[in-house]
Structure formats: C-alpha cells, structure tokens
C-alpha cells in the first residue's frame, strides 16, 4: 500500500513538474521572447495581457 501510494505520488509530481515546465516555456515563448517575429506576431496579445512588451 505504502509503495503504491508513493509511486502514485511520484508519478503525480512528475506530471505536475511536466505541466509547470510546459506552461512556463509556452508563456516565455508567447509572452516574453524578444525575437522580432515573435514580438510582432504576439504584439497585441502581449499588451492585452499586461506583459512587459517593448
């Protein structure tokens, strides 16, 4: 029982970590990366979600 719960918790934490990494990476690319192409494409959304834009 203990082993099963600890395996479940470990797998739960791994999923949590994976989602955090995905969320932060996507937020960085869509909201913060300063390549000119990304900036121009995401411009209106960056202003409209309150990200520091330029």
């Amino acid at each position: 029982m203990t082993t099963l719960s600890s395996v479940k918790t470990t797998s739960g934490l791994a999923s949590v970590l994976a989602m955090v990494v995905m969320g932060v990476a996507l937020m960085f690319v869509a909201g913060h990366a300063q390549s000119a192409t990304l900036h121009d494409a995401a411009h209106d959304m960056r202003h409209a979600t309150g990200f520091p834009c330029h």
Partner: peptide, 30 residues
Amino acid sequence: TRNGLTVLFTILIYVSYAGLLVAGFGLAET
C-alpha cells in the same frame, strides 16, 4: 493576419495559464 495572430497567441497564452493552473490542481491533489 494581425488579428489572426492575436487570436492564435491569445489561445497559446491561455493554454500556458491553464497548464500552470492544472499543475496547481495536481499539486493540491498530491
């Protein structure tokens, strides 16, 4: 093009918010 990209990036950013939110749900559950 401009408005299409705005829709696309708005979805991307809300997916990123949703990812962090659901990660929080998962952490709360553990």
